[in-house]
């Protein structure tokens, strides 16, 4: 239905602070684009610029090929789901959903049809006569979604919509948002600081840091080939282990494969580690001794927190583990699972 194109978009606040420093993203039709990054990285500002709630200091934002820089949020034909839902507290659920339609001068019976249809999709029919304060957090979230969907806009914008829900509900809603977005086929931009949400939801994942795009691509590509140490440590839970290389050497390393270029950091994911000497069938890989400082059994897997190679690493082992705090273990990571980063933090 619509594409969203950002070209060198910048946001400079009156005080001279540059929140977004030139971001270009092309979101294809029907795709769900997730903006992820730590707080203060400019992702929410960017979303609000797409919404038209913030002015764009430089660059262009186009929706469906049309530059919308100077158009207000009403005319951009977007719908937004807010972090705190922003439901109108004095209106019934029905009126909350109908408000946007009525403001656009839609005839009454058409409004009624749309609202009831959407309520049915979201299983909200029995709540239509209630007020927001009589609803649970999850139900409010649904109403907020309903208010966006009922408008049938060109673009959905989500501003950390799940951050106020408990972990279980968050998981449920995540799946639901994804399937709903697929079904409706509406281009969406979704802002979150939760890397798990980002990984599972995104068709296009944009990792942002300090007002710039660190990496843009398919979630698994980013996971497998992080472009920088920032992305490596942000995407994945627990994050990638990063150890410093000094003069191409790693402290405590038993074997170290040829270092690519003049890398200063070596990285490997916790789940790419093999524990024990027998795991090391191939000699072409990183092998180092680790001191176990903590063990976290989670059930299906266990995490070993170790000191190794002049830093701290996390090792994931499947199922239960007999390893105890204080043990010394040989850790092995295959050559193809190693990542090298240069002194500027970029992948080499």
């Amino acid at each position: 239905m619509a594409t969203v194109d950002l070209k060198d978009v910048r946001k400079i606040y009156a005080g001279g602070v540059e929140a977004v420093k030139g971001v270009s993203i092309a979101i294809p039709d029907k795709a769900l684009c997730v903006l992820v990054g730590p707080s203060g990285c400019g992702k929410s500002t960017l979303l609000r610029m797409i919404a038209g709630l913030e002015t764009i200091s430089a660059g262009t934002c186009s929706i469906d090929g049309k530059v919308v820089n100077s158009i207000g949020p009403t005319e951009r034909d977007i719908a937004m789901v807010f972090q705190n839902y922003a439901l109108y507290p004095h209106m019934k659920v029905y009126d909350n959903m109908a408000y946007g339609l009525r403001n656009r001068g839609m005839p009454k019976d058409e409004v009624d049809k749309r609202v009831r249809g959407t309520a049915q999709t979201l299983e909200l029919e029995h709540l239509l006569e209630r007020r927001p304060r009589e609803l649970s957090g999850g139900q409010r979230q649904r109403v907020a979604m309903g208010r966006a969907i009922v408008r049938n806009p060109k673009v959905f914008l989500f501003d950390e919509p799940l951050s106020n829900l408990d972990a279980k509900l968050r998981g449920q809603m995540r799946v639901e948002i994804k399937s709903l977005q697929r079904k409706l086929g509406v281009t969406s931009v979704y802002v979150t600081h939760d890397q798990l949400e980002a990984m599972t939801l995104a068709d296009v994942l944009v990792v942002m840091n300090a007002g710039l795009v660190e990496q843009l691509g398919a979630p698994l590509d980013i996971y497998e080939k992080p472009a920088s140490t920032f992305v490596a440590s942000f995407i994945g839970a627990p994050p990638m282990n990063l150890l410093p290389l000094r003069g191409g050497q790693l402290e405590d390393a038993i074997t170290l494969p040829t270092v690519t270029g003049n890398a200063t950091t070596i990285g490997f994911r916790p789940e790419d580690c093999e524990v024990g000497a027998d795991g090391a069938t191939s000699s072409d890989g990183l092998r180092l001794m680790a001191n176990v400082e903590g063990v976290e059994p989670v059930g299906a897997e266990s995490f070993l927190y170790c000191a190794a190679g002049g830093g701290k690493i996390v090792v994931r082992v499947a199922g239960r583990t007999e390893v105890q705090v204080g043990d010394q273990l040989p850790i092995f990571a295959r050559r193809e699972k190693l990542h090298f980063f240069g002194s500027d933090g970029k992948r080499v």
Binding site: R48, A51, G52, L53, G72, P73, T74, I78, A79, M80, F82, Q83, N84, Y85, A86, L87, Y88, Y99, G100, N103, R147
Partner: peptide, 9 residues
């Protein structure tokens, strides 16, 4: 957010 929601609406 309420003000913004109204603007979007």
């Amino acid at each position: 957010e309420l003000v913004e929601a109204a603007r979007v609406d």
